[in-house]
């Protein structure tokens, strides 16, 4: 079930299981991920044009995604983090829809299994 989820969202299940030991525990973290507010910070920053706030959200989200081994999401978040770090808001605006898409996919899949 968990392994399937990782496949659907293009994550790395092997890394996740080595890091979190078992499916039960991964599930716990998936639930935590639903409560994490860093995506909200990124989204608000993007909507209000606050580059600094968007960067903080992206930066935190990146760390979380790496820890969770959400490879696909983590890749686009990393990209937008660097764009925002360089204060290239226009480029970040172009990247954001991809982030949104990947993030929604992850959230949807998690919601399906809990």
């Amino acid at each position: 079930m968990i392994e399937e989820l990782y496949k659907k969202i293009n994550g790395n299940y092997e890394i996740a299981i080595s890091r979190m030991q078992n499916d039960e525990r991964i599930l716990k973290y998936l639930k935590f991920f639903l409560m994490d507010e860093s995506y909200k910070g990124l989204e608000d920053g993007m909507n209000s044009g606050d580059c600094e706030a968007a960067f903080r959200g992206a930066h935190t989200l990146k760390g979380v995604c790496q820890n969770m081994a959400f490879t696909a999401l983590s890749t686009v978040v990393e990209q937008i983090t660097e764009e925002l770090r360089a204060k290239d808001f226009e480029k970040a605006k172009q990247t954001f829809p991809q982030v949104e898409e990947e993030y929604k996919k992850v959230i949807d899949e998690i919601n399906k299994i809990i």
Partner: peptide, 12 residues
């Protein structure tokens, strides 16, 4: 750490 998931991972 300000991110709960990170703290939990370390705790585990």
């Amino acid at each position: 750490d300000d991110v709960m998931i990170n703290r939990e991972l370390l705790k585990d």
